[in-house]
């Protein structure tokens, strides 16, 4: 019973009253600058030979840029928990698609047991 009410509390705390939060030009400007900077870094990094780490660095920078866009340009930082959960659910399912498919592709070469 207590578990039930606990879960109920979690689910019922979705804010029904959403505080209007206006993100100003200053924040947008800073994020814009950061995004341009990261673009320059990622292009520059691609000219340095880091063997396998070229891909890691490029994708890490892409993830940082995506997170900046999602949090600030798309206002997720200031949004309700429901919105955050929605974004997370999307990426979670995407990861499931990739990892579960990869279980096949990685182990196909291992042959029969």
């Amino acid at each position: 019973m207590s578990e039930e009410t606990h879960a109920q509390e979690i689910l019922d705390t979705e804010p029904t009253h959403h505080e209007e939060h206006i993100v100003g030009p200053r924040v947008y400007g800073i994020i814009f600058g950061l995004l341009m900077l990261f673009t320059a870094i990622t292009v520059g990094a691609s000219y340095i030979d880091m063997y396998a780490f070229n891909a890691v660095v490029a994708l890490a920078i892409a993830c940082i840029k995506a997170v900046l866009v999602i949090l600030f340009f798309m206002h997720v930082k200031y949004s309700s928990r429901l919105t955050k959960l929605t974004v997370a659910a999307g990426f979670f399912t995407f990861v499931v698609l990739i990892t579960m498919t990869m279980t096949d592709y990685i182990s196909r070469a291992w042959g029969l047991w």
Partner: peptide, 22 residues
Amino acid sequence: GFFVWAHHMFIMGVSNYSALVF
């Protein structure tokens, strides 16, 4: 439901190990 789809593919040539997981 999102973790089981390859059980439609057991005889199609997916890896044995992956088939076991699915």
